[in-house]
Structure formats: structure tokens, C-alpha cells
Write a protein that binds this DNA or RNA. Structure first.
Length: 424
RNA sequence: GGAGAGAUGGCGGAGUGGCCGAACGCGCCGGUCUUGAAAACCGGAUCCCGCGCAAGCGGGACGGGGGUUCGAAUCCCUCUCUCUCCGCCA
């Protein structure tokens, strides 16, 4: 949520920056509404001040045993006027609040202006995309011969897009989770948390999924709850409505399933594990002092990259253009893995600085150096998402004989196994 | 799911209709004393919003929301959460 004061102080600047993400807001109308809101508040407070005086007088007169019928009548009338003013204020505030909730974050000045993903900027590339002496297979074919996933039978359980890992595939998934959590907690300074996978509407509003993304999420209407689309939601909301007293930054890592309806996304290019309704993801979340949030973002991207480097997988880092960023982000880097069988890059991580956008929605503050309450900056990034990571491991590690050589760093988590071999 | 108890400032804990934003204790900040520290003593400190260049003025907040009343931390309703007991249960 943007600060209405910022909009008031620099309406043209806000409008222009929103325009770079193809969002146009009627700033003038919003400010006019704000004008009305403040006028109603001022008038209501003037009346309340009057009533307070009159009430005080009633107390004094009663104590003196005097008649207060007339003055009580006066106070009651004031009360009625106040109630009317308060109703105005509430209704205007509600309108304004809904309006502000629907406005995306302002892009940071370092974000390249662009219409969409085609204007994203490749910041760096790491690792070698090696040539195969044979035609590389895609992960669906590989996992079939290796017996890692059963896509056919999985459809019986919840339909397409809900993968069923089997045997070494299930173990690989577990090993990767363990491997990544260990790395972030022991090398990057994160504290592991294990949050609920279901959250309230308030939590979804706090991180910005609602009201905009309702159609993309699984809802439990009987309970007013939602399945999380990412651990970002429960983990960021841990500190909702709180003034954080402990020293910042707070760095948390969580591994959870993520549920996404991906409505309308089925079809080509979504085979196997590429785009699924349920997947696991290791998520990094930080609460930092505003002054350090951009340095923290760079470091956060590095934390995710370290996972891929340790696994020896070729990747590239993109700086997203203003038009391609998600609703709440001020700046965002994507990390994409090279998938030779798929023949393209696969996004496995998205690392964003939300500045105070989420903190303002979720009301997360801290005591800054001057002892003043201030909204924190929140960041998060995948570290990393599992299905596409598995795709890359399989497709990059495949051999001519159909086996897959596992990254060395992963072997201790696979009971020393060096390679996945076809089932007899 | 049923019955009961409770929710007050950073923490503990008073306060049951009218200068209560809230006694008191702890903790915190500043000062005096001290070579330094502790102790003791003195002083200070909540947050949100509106108006104002500012000094400041005003409004609101005692878990959330609503109500009664001229006036609510205090009375009523409701929701949430915590605790105790019973039931159910992986």
C-alpha cells in the first residue's frame, strides 16, 4: 500500500512512476476524496471537542446539585451530529482504503522501464551450458525411465498438475529440501521456521495477494481461509500488527508446499513439472531497516545463487522491467536455470524488495535509531523452487545411457548415491 | 464440540460511570552522588490521526467491533485469542 501522504506531496511523481508499470490511477480523484476525508475528520473533531467541554460541565453541575436538563439536551444534539460526521468519515475511509489496496507498488529508480518480460535485463550468467553428444531428453522422459514421477496415476488423485513423486524421485525432493535448508541456516544466517500452509484473508491482504489475486488461489470458503501460494505469506505475516523489538535484520527461511490454481495456464509448455498446482519451495524472507534494504536484496539474490552454484547448474539472473514486476515489488530479480532437454530457461527464483509496501499493509514496524516507530522493509526470494530445480538437475546431469549423474553436493543427502539409473 | 475464567502501557499489576492516558512495582532513558560502577536520590518517557511553517492546539486508542449513557477502561452484546475442566481425535 502506498502512503497517502506521499501521494499528496508528490502526485505527479507517483502518477509517472505508476505509469511505468502500465497502471493508471486517477490521482486527482483520489486526492479529492482524501480532501473530503480530512475535512470530515476536522469537523467531527471540532464537535467532539465541544461535547467534551459540555460533558465536563454536566459533571460539575450535577455535583453541585443543579438542574442539567437543558444542557444535557444540548449534549445529546451534539452527539447526533457527531455520529453523522463519524459515519461520513468511516465510509470515505473505507473507499479510500480499498482504492489504495488496489494500487501496485512504485518501481525503484534502478528498475528498467519496460512493457513486459521482453524488456527484462540479463544481469549475469553463471556456469557452462555444455554440449551433448546426443539429443538431450526432457525431464518427463527421463523421470519415466528413471521411475521418479508417475504423472499418469497422479491425475487420479487431484487431476493434472498435482505431481506424484515415487521412489528416488520422492527422495530427491526430500534431499533437495534438506540440502537447501541446511545451506541457508548454516551458511547464510537464516532461522528456519515451519509455518501453517493455510492462512486467513487478513494475511493474504497483508502481503498483497488479495484483493487482486483471488482467482489464482485455492480458497476454503467454509472457514474463510486460503491455501498458501508461497511461504512468503505466512512468514511475512508472522510480524503483522507488531512493533518489532528485536534487532533487525530478521532473516527467516521456510520450506512449504505452494498451491496455485494457475487458471488458464494449462497446455503447451507446461508439461510434467514445469507448471504445477502444488509444489514445494524453500523461501527466504527478511525484515530489514529501510536504509539497508537494497544491499539486502543483492545479498539475498546471492543466497539463492549459492544453491545453484553448489549444485553446478548453469543459470542467469534477470532484472525485471517495470512492466513485468509483481504487484507488491519495488524491484525484482529472477533467476532462471538452463534446461537443455526443455530447450530453454526456467524461472526458479524471484527475489524482491517490497520496501514498506507490505509492511504498511500488514502494519509491521520497528523502533528505528531515533526510537521512532517506522515501517520496516520486507524482502523475499525463493531459495529455490523445487520442481524446476529437479528438471534442471535431471536434464543437465543426463548421460547417453539415460542415467543421471547427481551433483556432488547432493550425494550425502541421497545416502551417497552418485547417479540415478534406469529401472529394470 | 460443551462449561467456566480472563485480556489494561516494554513487563507485572491496580482501577467497576465524570480532570484515568491510567496508581504502584520492575525494566528503560537522562541527571546528582562516585576515581569508575552499583546502591540511593531527582527527573523523563505510550501510540495513531487532524489542523499548523513552527511553538502548539484538538480528537481518538485500556484485545477487535457494536450498543447503552449528557459522559465508558468501568455497564450490555458480539467476535477473536489465552487458560482450566469435559468430550472427540492423528
Amino acid at each position: 500500500m502506498l502512503d497517502i501522504k506521499l501521494i499528496r506531496e508528490n502526485p505527479a511523481g507517483v502518477r509517472d512512476r505508476l505509469k511505468t508499470r502500465r497502471c493508471s490511477v486517477d490521482i486527482a480523484a483520489l486526492l479529492e476524496l482524501d480532501e473530503r476525508r480530512r475535512a470530515a475528520i476536522t469537523e467531527g473533531e471540532r464537535l467532539k471537542s465541544q461535547r467534551n467541554e459540555v460533558s465536563k460541565k454536566i459533571g460539575v453541575l450535577k455535583k453541585a446539585g443543579e438542574d442539567t436538563t437543558e444542557i444535557q439536551h444540548q449534549s445529546r444534539e451534539l452527539g447526533e451530529q457527531i455520529a453523522a460526521r463519524d459515519a461520513d468519515v468511516r465510509s470515505i475511509e473505507e473507499t479510500q482504503h480499498q482504492w489504495l489496496l488496489a494500487i501496485p507498488n512504485l518501481p525503484h529508480e534502478s528498475v528498467p522501464e519496460g512493457e513486459d518480460a521482453t524488456q527484462n535485463v540479463v544481469v549475469r550468467e553463471w556456469g557452462l551450458r555444455h554440449d551433448f553428444s546426443f539429443t538431450p531428453q526432457d525431464h518427463v522422459a527421463l523421470s519415466e525411465t528413471l521411475g521418479l514421477f508417475d504423472f499418469e496415476r497422479a491425475a487420479r488423485l487431484a487431476g493434472a498438475g498435482f505431481p506424484l513423486a515415487t521412489g528416488a524421485g520422492a527422495r530427491l525432493k526430500r534431499a533437495l529440501i534438506q540440502f537447501m535448508l541446511d545451506m541457508h541456516t548454516t551458511q547464510h544466517g537464516y532461522t528456519e521456521v515451519a509455518p501453517p500452509h493455510i492462512v486467513s484473508t487478513a494475511a493474504m491482504i497483508g502481503t498483497g495477494q488479495l484483493p487482486k489475486m483471488a482467482a489464482d488461489m485455492y480458497e476454503l470458503p467454509a472457514d474463510g481461509l486460503w491455501l498458501i501460494p508461497t511461504a512468503e505469506v505466512p512468514v511475512t505475516n508472522i510480524y503483522r500488527d507488531e512493533i518489532i523489538r528485536q534487532p533487525l535484520p530478521i532473516k527467516l527461511v521456510a520450506q512449504t508446499p505452494c498451491f496455485r490454481r494457475e487458471a488458464g495456464a494449462a497446455g503447451k509448455g507446461t508439461r510434467g513439472l514445469i507448471r504445477v498446482h502444488q509444489f514445494n519451495k524453500v523461501e527466504l524472507v527478511q525484515f530489514v531497516p529501510p536504509a539497508t534494504s537494497y544491499a539486502a536484496l543483492d545479498k539475498l539474490v546471492g543466497d539463492a545463487e549459492n544453491v545453484l552454484q553448489a549444485l553446478g547448474l548453469p543459470y542467469r539472473v534477470l532484472l525485471l522491467s517495470s512492466g513485468d514486476m509483481s504487484f507488491a515489488a519495488a524491484k525484482c530479480y529472477d533467476i532462471e536455470l538452463w534446461a537443455p532437454g526443455h530447450g530453454g530457461w526456467l524461472e526458479v527464483s524471484s527475489c524482491s524488495n517490497f520496501e514498506s509496501f507490505q509492511a504498511r499493509r500488514a502494519n509491521i514496524r520497528w523502533k528505528n535509531a531515533e526510537g521512532k516507530n517506522e515501517f520496516v522493509h520486507t524482502l523475499n526470494g525463493s531459495g529455490v523452487a523445487l520442481p524446476r530445480l529437479m528438471v534442471a538437475i535431471l536434464e543437465n546431469g543426463q548421460q547417453a545411457d539415460g542415467s543421471v549423474v547427481l551433483p556432488e553436493a547432493l550425494r550425502p543427502y541421497m545416502g551417497g548415491l552418485e547417479r540415478l539409473t534406469p529401472q529394470a
